[in-house]
């Protein structure tokens, strides 16, 4: 474990807790894409298949349970909670899951470190995580404005992956056998996807105005 990865995990944890707290507190999911949240629940499910077979550390297992629990709770709130679900804008949140799931699955079958079910699922989760934010970014562009909590949520998600990139660079130099080029490429693609959002987020923060994403 290094400081970059710990900071990345804490930022990631904070982002999902901020979102869960927002939905739980104000009983609203306005501006939140259910599609993205469902994709994240799928990312964690396919990535943590080894949660009960490979014990890494208490920290690792606890964090996996928190990410699984929080992502499924968020999906439950938006789908099932009698008050929250009323604020879900299903007419605007129309991104098709399978446009992302199927290409990631095909790619994982052909490009992976080892052709086993768990390894292909793990690789699939990496590719899917890189693009899972797209329905949320599309929704933000459609609804033009975003409330600052959603902006912070997306910002923290991007920041966590950027910290992970620093972690991979650090591990590349400190651990001789640490080679995970698939992780690195997926992680860089993911962070680049956030880059334009970062740009507009900083612009709005600097000019102290509501965040407007270009159509």
């Amino acid at each position: 474990m290094n400081i970059f990865r710990l900071a990345g995990d804490m930022t990631h944890l904070f982002s999902v807790l901020v979102l869960l707290l927002k939905i739980h507190t104000i009983k609203s999911c306005a501006g939140i894409s259910l599609k993205t949240q469902e994709l994240y629940a799928l990312v964690f499910t396919t990535r943590y298949l080894d949660i009960f077979t490979d014990f890494i550390s208490l920290y690792n297992t606890v964090m996996k349970l928190i990410f699984l629990g929080s992502s499924f709770s968020i999906v439950w709130y938006i789908r099932r909670h009698k008050i929250v679900r009323r604020s879900y804008d299903k007419d605007q949140d129309t991104f098709r899951h399978y446009f992302l799931v199927i290409p990631c699955l095909v790619l994982a079958v052909f490009i992976n470190h080892k052709f086993t079910f768990k390894e292909v699922m793990w690789t699939f989760s990496l590719y899917l995580e890189a693009v899972a934010i797209l329905p949320q970014l599309v929704l933000l562009q459609r609804t033009r404005n975003i409330d600052n909590l959603t902006g912070q949520y997306v910002f923290l998600l991007g920041a966590y992956r950027a910290l992970y990139i620093l972690n991979w660079i650090y591990r590349h130099f400190t651990e001789p056998h640490y080679v995970h080029w698939i992780t690195w490429i997926a992680g860089v693609v993911q962070t680049l996807l956030y880059a334009d959002f970062f740009y507009y987020y900083f612009q709005s923060w600097k000019n102290n105005e509501k965040l407007q994403l270009p159509a």
């Binding site: 990865r5 990535r47 890494i56 964090m63 080892k114 972690n167 056998h177 995970h180 992780t183």
Partner: peptide
């Protein structure tokens, strides 16, 4: 190669 396929990251 020597790549450890143990995924120790979240």
């Amino acid at each position: 190669g020597g790549t450890t396929l143990k995924h120790d990251e979240l």
